[in-house]
Amino acid sequence: MSRIAARLLTLWAGLAYGLLFAPIVVIVLFSFNLPSGRFNLIWQGFTLENWLHPFRDRALTDAFLTSLSLALAASLIATVLGGLMAIGLSRSQGRAHGAIELLLVLPLTSPEIVLAASLLNLFVQINLPRGFGTLVLAHSLFCLSFAALTMKARLGGVDWSLEAAAQDLGATPLRTFGQITLPLLAPGLLAAFLLSFSLSLDDYIISAFTAGQVIVFPLYIAGAFQREISPQIHVMATMVLLVSIGLLGLGLGSKDGE
């Protein structure tokens, strides 16, 4: 390739990445803005005020905390159940194998709106009042598929003869599970948990259908465009971004260490 072509390619790649990350940069930038009205959309001046009082917006903070506890509950349930499913699937060669895997993939491939509408339909039919409980149920459900499939992929590389070795060395089944099986599964469980957590945290469609009167973070932000966009929204979004980058860095770092 000629030098000019190489430069053009670099420029093109730069543009693509720029476009991809520009909105995120704007979010971070506007967390330092000093807005004049109720809408933090036009740059006025630099301030640290928003970062000093990140929880000033009461309703926003409530929505954020609700989302965090929802994500925690749903990903715990999904990780435990999904992990058990994956272990069961990887160790047995039953005839139901294919059917179960199909059922696992189905929620991922079908449009989210279908799942959301049918869940709402179901909750109404069985007369289950919508609220935090139905949110946890719905989120656990769609996270379960991701968690189980993530675990299943990780289990491919697990050497089950290590369990036999532990038993051979006199470990009871309980000790074998605690000392050997669980540490072997830990990376997969962590991956499944983090994936479930982030999926639950930013889910809008399913939450909108199953939340009832409860307001979670994405619902609040969507609603904010009609009332008020406080700079605290940008602060919290930046916090979430920082946590994500931190976790990513941690993951890459531990991979380098091996």
Binding site: D159, A166, D168, L169, G170
Partner: peptide, 20 residues
């Protein structure tokens, strides 16, 4: 007698050392 109560130990073909 189950494996964990037998006074027999095994060196497995691929050793099965605990990697962690």
């Amino acid at each position: 007698t189950p494996p964990h109560r037998r006074n027999v130990n095994t060196v497995f073909q691929h050793y099965a050392l605990f990697p962690h």
